[in-house]
Design a protein around this nucleic acid. Sequence first.
DNA 1: TTGCTAATGACAACCATTGTCAATAAGGAA
DNA 2: TTCCTTATTGACAATGGTTGTCATTAGCAA
Lengths: 130, 130
Amino acid sequence: MSNSFTRTTKQRNAVIEVLRDHKGFISAQDIHNFLKNSASTVGLSTVYRTMTALTTSNDVDVMLREDGEALYRLCSSVHHHHLVCRDCGTTIEIQADYVEAWAKDVSQAHGFSDIDHTVEIVGICKKCKK
Amino acid sequence: MSNSFTRTTKQRNAVIEVLRDHKGFISAQDIHNFLKNSASTVGLSTVYRTMTALTTSNDVDVMLREDGEALYRLCSSVHHHHLVCRDCGTTIEIQADYVEAWAKDVSQAHGFSDIDHTVEIVGICKKCKK
DNA sequence: TTGCTAATGACAACCATTGTCAATAAGGAA
DNA sequence: TTCCTTATTGACAATGGTTGTCATTAGCAA
Ligand SMILES: [Zn+2]
Ligand SMILES: [Zn+2]
Ligand SMILES: [Zn+2]
Ligand SMILES: [Zn+2]
């Protein structure tokens, strides 16, 4: 947790708490709704501001749902990708050195530089499979 | 072009024409704006409807920009991924059997089924590199 | 305790996307 | 060619996620 806040607030702690307790990716709107039905309510603006900060500090990963809504998740800081269950949201962090190397090779082969890549796998996990 | 339209219209042809002439990914809004300054103007709703149909028929690929806006591109129908220039939008279709196999293996190893995956590489192409 | 100011939250503004529906036009039938 | 059915269009409203505004609140260092 290397975020760049200069002060500690209960609102931010509440948001981070929700992220900690949630196993998969979750939207800002859902974090806000969840806290609405709890002891510590947090303004929607604050949720968004917190997510932006946590994203910048690399404490959370962002994933875009098909409709474009942003989903967030507390993640380890080492580079990795995700295997996500389409139903329950359960997320497994995956690493694959070969894929990293492949991305670099393909890019160089075509003369591209300053590479960034997206690799996500979505499917149905064992539990959700009937 | 195996779309499911039952009639041919000049509006749809105009939209497809724009996609043909555009080398990279382009948003519905931009297609609409481009046609606004041309002979054949097309309503925004029609642009969206056309993109939805072309996406369903697999004639165009969809890619989400960081801010969540959808970008479209006429693509070959064989499964592939993209190498995109962050600056000029130039797009190269890439295929990698190993990555396909890897996605399948990782999924199975974790008990996931009905897999779908996203693999995109963005960077700066040779021309745009200073 | 006090003072500075980061942080909050209610609210408005923004903007891509979808829904609505009366008017239009593609194209098969006659 | 003309007529008719209805797929398609487009202007406009509505939706919903996200960002901007700004007066008020509350960390925290002195
Ligand atoms: Zn599941
Ligand atoms: Zn990677
Ligand atoms: Zn493609
Ligand atoms: Zn370029």
